[in-house]
Design a protein around this nucleic acid. Sequence first.
DNA 1: ATACGCACCTGATTGC
DNA 2: TGCAATCAGGTGCGTA
Length: 270
Amino acid sequence: MPELPEIETVCRQLRDVILGAEITRTRVLDPKLRGSGGLTGRKVEGITRQGKAVALVLEGGGVIIVHLRMTGRFLWHEGKGIPPHTRLVISFSRGRLLLIDPRRFATVTVSKNLPTAPLGSDLLNDGDPSQLWLLAQKSKAAIKAFLMDQRRIAGIGNIYACEILHRAEINPWRKSNTLSRDAWITIAAVAKEILKQAITCRGTSVSDWRDLFGTAGENQRYLMVYGREGEACYRCGERVERRKLSGRGTYYCPACQNEKGGPNHGTMEL
DNA sequence: ATACGCACCTGATTGC
DNA sequence: TGCAATCAGGTGCGTA
Ligand SMILES: [Zn+2]
């Protein structure tokens, strides 16, 4: 589930715990992750976020890129034994960093350099509305799919895409190239607010997301539409709907995101 | 270029 | 109770 705010949260917490620390041992518990061992003696020199991926930069060259995908999470563990679904153990003198991942979609790659990322701009740190507008002029894709396309915009996943569009009062099916420059100013501003708030809350814990120390995030308390099918919209009272958009459950308010006069007004076809 | 279905996996929940 | 279908944070592939 981890999207930008969840990964940002773990990165910040990892900096407090393993920055400058030396790897004393690695254990690979999932054959899919073979190739992510053999790092004994390496020191963690930096921790950065690349969209939704965590990059552990090693001293003397080399980097471990971890993508948590759907159910992956990191846990800092100082006790004995390991919890179920632990797929990788990276040991340090002061404790062990566990990669826990029930569905086993997470990926770990060890390479020489940070990848020349095919990632788009990051709405937390960049997100210039004029540039986004220009980029969107070239796309007929639904705005929600556009926001979630990591090559265009890095870090937005299904939960935050739904939340951003609801706060911006934009229909998820709206064609990207029909949005005005002003609309992009709104999107960029709203996205930054929502992402920052979620980071302050240490992420959104739907199902099993936990931060580095095993604590649930708080942002699920502030979700306006995600996971609220059939419940009243907090803004207008209409019932929140869920429909599929490019294969993903999409939550939206058919009233506040109907965009009267807009291309989809009155027709929520599909 | 873009859209869709499906695959990758496991577990929880829902419906009959 | 039992079992099958459906759903879930994400990405990547092959196919129209
Ligand atoms: Zn509403």
